[in-house]
């Protein structure tokens, strides 16, 4: 027999967050709620005499599986919001009704069931589990190995991209750059050799001429070159000396 209070606590932390699967908008919220459900289930396992399984549940489910879910959620864009408005006619209500009906019917079946409870529960300690696994269920374990290989291979096949272009060395990169006539060295920063180092003031070459492309295009497009206006004017009109100001 198990502690009733424990049951109700577990029921609360599994069922309530589980509803987020149906109603929460953000996928991340759902994932975090499911993590909570998993923890609740782990607690249930411990209560039911399966401490090892409870631990494994936390490690595997909350620690690995749900993190994998989160990881993929992040990968596909965490801010993908889902419109909860239903697009398929009748799907929502028939779906809810059917699922609720299934739940209610299963519950009614379980309630009708009379099962004598064993006076002493089992204790699923690791050693007990281990012996069981490798005695009676050893074949299943071995077959599971193949399942894991399949999973790994499958993930690789579907997501791993090998190098399709040959890897280029630094030397090759540099050669190509020179060949297309790009600057062999870094581009000058704005403000270099100029009198002012505002971002919108072009650098000056050794002859004192402004290098226009040292100013980011973005600034020009955004019309944010106001601040350096007078310095520009000065550059364009070499007759004006610094002292004139």
């Amino acid at each position: 027999m198990v502690n009733a209070a424990m049951f109700w606590i577990i029921a609360a932390i599994t069922v309530i967050p589980a509803f987020s699967l149906l109603f929460a908008r953000k996928a991340v919220h759902v994932a975090m709620s499911v993590v909570l459900v998993m923890v609740g289930l782990a607690a249930a396992y411990v209560t039911l005499g399966a401490p090892f399984l409870g631990m494994v549940q936390i490690v595997v489910y909350t620690g690995a599986v749900m993190m994998l879910f989160l990881f993929v959620l992040m990968l596909v864009g965490v801010d993908q919001r889902e419109e909860l408005k239903e697009t398929i006619k009748g799907q929502r209500w028939i779906g809810l009704f059917t699922a609720a009906g299934l739940g209610a019917f299963l519950v009614s079946i379980v309630v009708r069931t009379v099962l004598p409870v064993a006076p002493t529960g089992v204790q699923g300690e690791p050693d007990v589990i281990a012996i069981m696994l490798f005695e009676k269920y050893v074949l299943v374990i071995e077959v599971l190995g193949f399942l894991l290989i399949t999973a790994a291979v499958g993930a690789l096949v579907l997501t791993h991209t090998p190098r399709l272009k040959p890897r280029r060395t630094q030397l090759e990169v540099q050669r190509d750059r020179v060949r297309v006539g790009a600057d062999p060295v870094n581009k000058p920063m704005p403000g270099v050799y100029a009198r002012h180092n505002a971002l919108d003031v072009p650098a000056l070459d050794p002859e004192g001429r402004p290098i226009e492309h040292s100013v980011s295009r973005v600034l020009k497009i955004r019309n944010q070159t106001v601040e350096g206006e007078q310095w520009r004017a000065q550059l364009e009109d070499p007759s004006r000396k610094e002292g004139d100001r």
Partner: peptide, 23 residues
């Protein structure tokens, strides 16, 4: 209709019906 959710619904409705009838 091409909607996987409808397919799942069909399956579940089928399940509920057969389970009700059989049980």
């Amino acid at each position: 209709n091409g909607q996987v959710r409808s397919y799942a619904l069909t399956m579940l409705v089928g399940l509920v019906i057969v389970i009700l009838v059989v049980v």
